[in-house]
């Protein structure tokens, strides 16, 4: 799995499905949870997306604002178990 691919798919999912604004200019280091763009339910959706799209199961205690606030953090977490 390529990092660029994961990042692109995740970015598309977040802007289209969660923020519901496909043209939103999401920054890699932008705090999507802490800024109020998405909420804790969206984290669960990201968890399911990671599992279905990339086959990576992220345990629930890792689906927190602190651990998943930015696109960078999410991508790193998804790729962590793949290396």
């Amino acid at each position: 799995m390529q990092e660029a691919e994961v990042r692109a798919k995740l970015r598309a999912f977040i802007t289209k499905e969660l923020i519901r604004n496909a043209s939103y200019p999401l920054d890699d280091a932008e705090g999507v949870c802490s800024s109020g763009l998405i909420d804790s339910f969206a984290l669960a959706e990201i968890g399911v997306f990671a599992e279905q799209e990339f086959g990576v199961y992220i345990p629930d205690p890792d689906l927190t604002v602190a651990k998943m606030d930015t696109l960078n953090l999410m991508v790193a977490r998804i790729l962590r178990d793949n290396r």
Partner: peptide, 18 residues
């Protein structure tokens, strides 16, 4: 409330989403 989120809210939401 973290405990509730980790062991009830999140797993249940994910199970239902799937």
């Amino acid at each position: 409330s973290d405990w509730g989120r980790f062991y009830i809210y999140s797993p249940l939401s994910r199970a239902l989403l799937k």
